[in-house]
């Protein structure tokens, strides 16, 4: 579900992959049409992005969706 999330349920590797791509949070935000604050919240796993934004992030980071996001039961 999109929205503020309990830390740890939807985990992601956005920070790791962004840093590997030598991209700043502002650059990634601009490329996926989100605000820098939203990228910060996603990286801190305080916000679970919508499917659309999650796919845009994965595509922008050049990684398959399941390598970027994972869901723990």
């Amino acid at each position: 579900m999109t929205g503020p999330t309990r830390r740890g349920r939807v985990s992601n590797r956005v920070r790791e992959l962004r840093e590997a791509a030598a991209m700043t949070q502002a650059e990634l935000a601009e490329r996926v049409s989100a605000s820098r604050q939203t990228i910060i919240a996603i990286e801190a796993e305080k916000y679970a992005p919508s499917l659309e934004l999650a796919f845009r992030l994965a595509r922008c980071l050049g990684a398959p969706f399941e390598d970027v996001f994972s869901y723990a039961d």
Partner: peptide
């Protein structure tokens, strides 16, 4: 400037 627009997180927070 360009940060003035609302993205999906801003809209989700406004809705809540």
């Amino acid at each position: 400037g360009s940060e003035a627009g609302k993205d999906e997180r801003d809209l989700a927070i406004a809705a809540r």
